[in-house]
Amino acid sequence: MRSQPMICIADDDEAIRDLLAIYLKNEGYKLCFAKTGKEVLDLVATETIDLVILDLMMPVMDGIATCIEIRKTQFMPILMLTAKTSDLDLMQGISVGADDYMKKPFNPLEVTLRVKSLLRRYRDYGADRIETTNELVYEDVTLNLQTRQCIKGERMIRLTPKEFDILAYFMRQPNQVLTVEQIYEAVWGEEAFEVDNTVMVHITKIREKIEETPRRPSYIKTVWGVGYRL
């Protein structure tokens, strides 16, 4: 990642784009802008984008469809903005590959903090730990910490940045029961406050990608009333 990360602000509301630009420019970030999902995809295809701030409700192609298309080829963090408040709407964004979300109206300072956290976790996850290898291995699943690739057997598994970080966290602590709060604080780098279903949705997506039978997982298992265990 470059010393000055490039952030794409995608929102059809000019006032929101301008507001976020003020705060993010003050942090030294480079910025590009999009008003529609189609414009986002064009930018992602032609520019090196380090993070996307993606509005859920946009013309031409909404945030959900845009996120799905981005995740076919790209793994940069995606922070979704939404004026919708139902858990179903919020979880839908995460389920298709968004790493985090914020409800509108939002505090631009909090958005800036979320951006910093997402970039830091994507760039430096595990950097504070001493690694003897660039790989983490559990049974037939291998994570390459340098390329951030996941391989199961001979098959490449496409994980989002948050999915990769969650699985790496489990693989560093096999056979240990981890609470939702522990997972959230380790991976999101924030205090676990009103975490709701965020961690659960990410683990469900990981299971869908690495398990032969996601409803009967053999890797990440639920420890009822406590958390999860690899």
Results as ranks from 00 to 15, higher is better:
T132N: 10
A98I: 07
N144H: 09
L24I: 01
G153Q: 09
E47L: 12
V40F: 04
T82K: 03
V137P: 06
K152E: 13
T142R: 15
A127E: 13
A168I: 02
E39P: 09
K25Q: 15
K103S: 11
L159K: 07
R148Y: 14
K162D: 11
V223N: 07
T46A: 06
V187C: 02
R123E: 13
T36K: 04
L178G: 01
M91S: 14
Q4N: 12
E163R: 12
A65G: 08
S86A: 04
L24D: 01
E110A: 07
L31H: 05
L24R: 06
L167M: 03
I70K: 00
E211S: 12
R123A: 10
R129G: 07
K116E: 12
G225R: 05
T48M: 09
Y101K: 04
D42P: 00
E163H: 09
V201T: 14
E212P: 00
T213N: 10
I64Y: 08
V52A: 03
N144M: 12
P217E: 10
A127I: 11
M76Q: 05
Y23E: 05
L136G: 05
W188Y: 13
L56C: 11
R17H: 07
V180R: 11
D124K: 12
V180C: 09
I7G: 02
E208C: 08
R215I: 14
M80P: 03
N26S: 14
I210Y: 03
